[in-house]
Amino acid sequence: MGSIVLKDVNKKFGETEVIPPLDLEINDGEFVVFVGPSGCGKSTLLRLIAGLEDLTGGQVNIDGKDVTEVSPAKRGLSMVFQSYALYPHMTVRKNIAFPMRMAGIDQATQDAKIDAAAKSLNLTDYLDRKPGQLSGGQRQRVAIGRAIVREPSAFLFDEPLSNLDAALRVGMRLEIMELHKKLNTTMIYVTHDQVEAMTMADKIVVLQAGVIEQVGSPLELYHKPRNKFVAGFIGSPKMNQIEGAEAAKHNAKTIGIRPEHVDVSKTEGTWKGVVGVAEHLGSDTFIHVHETGLDVGEGDLFTVRISGNIEVSHGDTVYLTPQMDKLHKFDAQGLRIE
């Protein structure tokens, strides 16, 4: 069990309101990702749920119980920190055993759980080492092991992979997703990497300056961003946002078209531009086009993504045609127009 409900939760540090009152519902077994730019309050929100920060106002409910005044340990949640936060003076075995020792679980049960966790996390050979003698990936596994053995009602992850190198990240990402499938426990995962958000989440919460901009499944956010911020934040490369006359043609303040929804031709099309840089990824090509005559904001950059390869080079003229059914429209407030 692990449904979490936030009601009117807000947080001030001194005079600065980092999180204006917000409501959020997280269902049992869901994989929820908090995503947003740096400093937007993701960690703070997670820590409010964990009980590591006091609420300025509002209420946190876990499984229908008000836990606002309950200490972190008694909330039945496990947290995995970006820095791993292992106890450096204890062996891996003692680290994993620690929450069980605190809970007064008997030795035999402890040992059984440690062995099971170590096996599933490939840590069996390292149980007698100290954290200082482990690689980053192994440390992260120990931190996860320590979180698992408590059998929490929900896991909280604060950017757990951001200290790992790219290859390891992809691997650990899959391991965490497997873990979720296996345990079926609620997980809240903080990241500013929108690829992680898109691939892992059942539900994404997009935050900006402590405000929830949108809550939805990855595909909802991708296909129907509620506003310009979400449209720009979700998806890579970023959505092209066009203002001015071109937008007015569609009765909007701003129109948006994702790079992958633009067709490129060397002979004809709606818009015309000059190729700047072309990035060849093998499977895809990103073409950055200048001088389109469109009001795309500062930088005068329009990005196109084509699957496969196309022979274009710097300075070539290309024609761009947006796929009309994939066009996003936003009003003067930046809100989506259906």
């Binding site: 340990a73 920190f81 106890y87 450096p88």
Partner: peptide
Amino acid sequence: DIIEAGKMDGL
């Protein structure tokens, strides 16, 4: 973080 991990673990 280490102190906070301890808090979470029930210290």
